[in-house]
Design a protein around this nucleic acid. Structure first.
Length: 664
DNA sequence: GCAGATTGGATTTTT
DNA sequence: TCCAATCTGC
């Protein structure tokens, strides 16, 4: 049944005596362990599929896991709860809405929605300040601090705390939550309501958490609350691949886990099924320079493999030419496929020269990342209608829907409506039908508002009974969205946008039929989902990706480019004393490669107008000496560099410790 | 005074 | 590439 598993993998799958932490090195088959464990729990231990819950970070990972579990478990796989942290939180809140003071139709605001909200609240503050405040509030939420729990350290924080209070009031009025709330609110409820906690714990006999090193404090807390005393969980992670600290992920959760659960069993997966020995040696050698809690050494039986090359390039242009030339030569020599190659870099902008070069040689490529489908304005337009149908208190959705397409409702009217709503302490939509409104808004405007209000009500009514696709089609027809697109922009642009809308509608209605959900129910999940993009995998093209985006992926041949002081490690991270995370980024980059690894750096690089001198990254020297240097051998980092890194690291540790003392 | 064009500059990104 | 800030022309 569990063929081809190595002993630690098998142990991780069978271990059920208490909390388990699986330290899964890069390429050590961790997804396999999770899916096999789910199969084991159901097949061998007789657990009901519905009693198994697995949590991932991204929709993509959740989808992959579902597919693999389906292959392994068969038809009942659908009953296993596999979702992202946020989807689980959303499900929790829909079920417990009343207890947290929400209506079940509440809206979920995405990053751009909340950014707009903050911008609106802080009209005359500059962008960087708004960003700072928003980040601060998010940090507070992750630390489970409400506006009244915050003890501001200075005036800036005091200001942020006031904004926080107003922000919370606004969300409440809109019956909306943000992404942080999806974790924080369930945690708060589980902590104060033992009955709810007990109910959820009986539904989860075993909890599996993927990418545990990426959890923030709040997510970690949620995991503990959901498992309770029994602590029947399997956390899988790799501290060496923790590259999201800047986003709130707390690697220290790993250490805490060992401290909080004395019974915690730790199993290390060190056999790597991906890369050659040379590549793993270089990776081990680099990561050894970070202080370690759990020592881990990857090995494989794939043989030495090709030598690792480090190319010192004259300048960035030369680098792009060298990489693409070498890539093409290699591809034709080995008769491989374009999809076997990846070019990985630190920042998005670094892709540019490589794109140019690839295009010049007619090499097909795909760029990972970019703006998400759901961030497109035409999709947001449609989604605003959905949100409004599901949640009439959602004022931002109301404003967007009421004014798109233009139907004669403008700023002045909305402002008057806003005043009327404010005085009555109700939402904009509800205010439309408030008695006495004719004294505040002139008849023609009021007629327009009421017409729109009636339309929304009719659609919301139909949305409950008719198929989602049907209602959505009719809605778009009724508002004349297609015609409006063609009126307000040139035909090519409008064409593209309308195609996106069609795709979205098609996808939503298919989902509605598949999951037997009506439009209102679909509207509730739409903020959290991403459509399956078909351009993935099967395309034969060179992959261009940032190191962050490449995590979890593997490629036969990797070109790691721009490996210079200032880029990797990034200048800002060096200044912040955060070289360790950059080193992990390097580690992630190296371990993406299966067969060959090419590293390049530039002695000179164009930066804006000027040309700047650059030095090879310290990480190159840290890779050891089983390396074939081309161009020039980079000089080892000076003693001063190392001392500076150490000093910065110590300073960070000290401030971290101080912080720990402050907050219990 | 404002909209559209141009130029310049760039950590990393998901939910 | 994409986004934001600044510039230019009406």
């Amino acid at each position: 049944m569990q063929q081809g598993l190595n002993p630690p993998q098998r142990e991780a799958i069978r271990y059920l005596d208490g909390p388990l932490l699986v330290l899964a090195g890069a390429g050590s088959g961790k997804t396999r362990v999770i899916t096999e464990k789910i199969a084991y729990l159901i097949g061998e231990c007789g657990m009901q599929p519905a009693h198994v819950t697995a949590i991932t970070f991204t929709n993509k990972a959740a989808r992959e896991m579902k597919e693999r579990v389906a292959k392994r478990v068969g038809e009942r796989a659908g009953e296993v709860n596999i979702s992202t942290f946020h989807a689980l939180g959303a499900k929790f809140l829909r079920m417990e809405a009343q207890a947290v003071g929400l209506k079940p139709g509440f809206s979920i605001l995405d990053a751009s929605d909340t950014a707009a909200l903050f911008q609106e609240m802080l009209k005359d503050a500059d962008k960087s300040r708004v960003k700072w405040i928003q980040q601060r509030i998010s940090l507070w939420k992750n630390a489970l601090l409400g506006p009244e729990d915050v003890s501001p350290a200075d005036d800036l924080e005091a200001g942020a705390a006031r904004v926080y209070a107003e922000y919370e009031r606004t969300l409440k009025a809109y019956q909306a939550v943000d992404f942080d709330d999806l974790i924080m609110k369930p945690v708060q409820l589980l902590e104060r309501d033992e009955e709810v906690a007990r109910r959820w714990r009986t539904r989860i006999w075993h909890l599996l958490v993927d990418e545990y090193q990426d959890t923030n404090r709040c997510q970690n807390r949620l995991m503990r609350l959901l498992t309770g005393e029994r602590a029947a969980f399997t956390a899988v992670g790799d501290d060496d691949q923790s590259i999201y600290a800047w986003r709130g992920a707390d690697v220290d959760n790993l250490r805490q886990l060992a401290a909080d659960y004395p019974r915690l069993k730790v199993i290390k997966l060190e056999q790597n099924y991906r890369s050659t020995t040379r590549i793993l040696k270089a990776a081990n050698s680099v990561i050894r320079h970070n202080p370690k809690l759990f020592e881990k050494r990857l090995w494989s039986d794939k043989g030495h493999g090709d030598p690792i090359r480090v190319m010192a390039c004259r300048d960035d242009q030369h680098e792009a030419e060298w990489v693409v030339t070498r890539l093409m030569a290699h591809k034709f020599e080995t008769r491989g496929h374009w999809r076997d190659y990846a070019i990985l870099y630190r920042g998005n902008h670094q892709a540019r020269l490589f794109e140019q070069q690839l295009r010049a040689h007619k090499v097909p490529y795909v760029l990972s990342g970019g703006q998400s489908f759901f961030d497109r304005s035409e999709i947001k337009d449609v989604v605003s209608y959905l949100r409004l149908l599901a949640n009439p208190d959602d004022d931002p959705a109301f404003i967007r829907a009421a004014t798109t397409p233009k139907r004669g409702i403008g700023g002045t009217t909305l402002e008057a409506l806003g005043h009327a709503a404010g005085r009555r302490h109700i939402g904009l939509f509800a205010a439309i039908f408030a008695p006495g409104l004719e004294l505040e808004i002139k008849a023609p405007q009021l007629a327009l508002l009421r017409e729109f209000g009636g339309f929304v009500n009719r659609m919301a009514w139909r949305a409950q009974k008719e198929p989602a696709g049907q209602v959505l089609d009719d809605l778009l027809k009724a508002i004349g969205y297609e015609a409006w697109l063609f009126e307000s922009m040139d035909a090519r642009d409008a064409e593209a946008r309308w195609a996106n809308v069609r795709e979205f509608v098609g996808w939503l209605s298919a989902k509605g039929e598949e999951e037997k959900k009506n439009l209102l129910e679909l509207a509730q999940t739409v903020a959290l989902i991403t459509m399956l993009d078909k351009r993935d995998e099967n395309v034969d093209a060179v992959q261009l990706a940032t190191l962050h985006a490449a995590k979890g992926l593997e490629f036969r041949h990797v070109f790691l480019v721009g490996v210079e002081e200032g880029s990797l490690p990034h200048r800002e991270s060096i200044e912040a004393g955060n070289v360790e995370e950059e080193r992990r980024l390097m580690y992630v980059g190296i371990t993406r490669a299966q067969m060959s690894l090419n590293i390049s750096w530039c002695m000179r690089r164009k930066q804006g107008k000027e040309i700047v001198e650059r030095a090879a990254s310290r990480f190159i020297a840290e890779m050891g000496d089983d390396i074939k240097h081309e161009g020039a051998v980079p000089s080892a980092p000076t003693f001063a560099d190392k001392a500076a890194e150490k000093a910065a690291g110590n300073a960070r540790l000290a401030s971290f410790k101080a912080l720990l003392k402050q907050s219990p």
